[in-house]
């Protein structure tokens, strides 16, 4: 806190142009840091479609895919229960003479 107080006291006597110079210097330093980080990013190879639209379509497809999987599991589960029920009743084979709905 004391250090901040000293800096404040020193800056009081500065003109507007000196203030602007300081801001520009700090901005340049920060810009350099930002661009160097971006340079690292540029070297990275995109392993996933980069446009937000593509990303949205892919995530949406993933959600639909899960719905499809859950639906299939429900159908298989129902079928399995039906099979188990007929097995418990001891009538595993279908009656060949049963009328068919066509």
């Amino acid at each position: 806190m004391r250090a901040i107080g000293i800096i404040k006291h020193r800056l009081k006597g500065w003109s507007l142009s000196r203030h602007l110079q300081l801001v520009a210097l700090v901005s340049l330093l920060l810009m350099d840091a930002v661009t160097s980080w971006a340079a690292d990013k540029i070297n990275k190879i995109e392993v996933f479609p980069s446009t937000p639209y593509d990303g949205y379509i892919i995530y949406e497809s993933l959600a639909v895919f899960w719905l499809f999987i859950i639906g299939l599991i429900v159908i298989i589960r129902m079928k399995l229960r039906e099979i188990q029920r007929t097995q418990e009743l001891g009538i595993e084979e279908q009656d060949p003479d049963a009328p068919l709905l066509r």
Binding site: I73, I76, Q87
Partner: peptide, 17 residues
């Protein structure tokens, strides 16, 4: 077949997901 095979199918679907 079909009991365990159907259970296998359900688990495979979850793994695929």
């Amino acid at each position: 077949f079909p009991n365990v095979f159907y259970k296998d199918l359900m688990i495979w679907l979850v793994v695929l997901g």
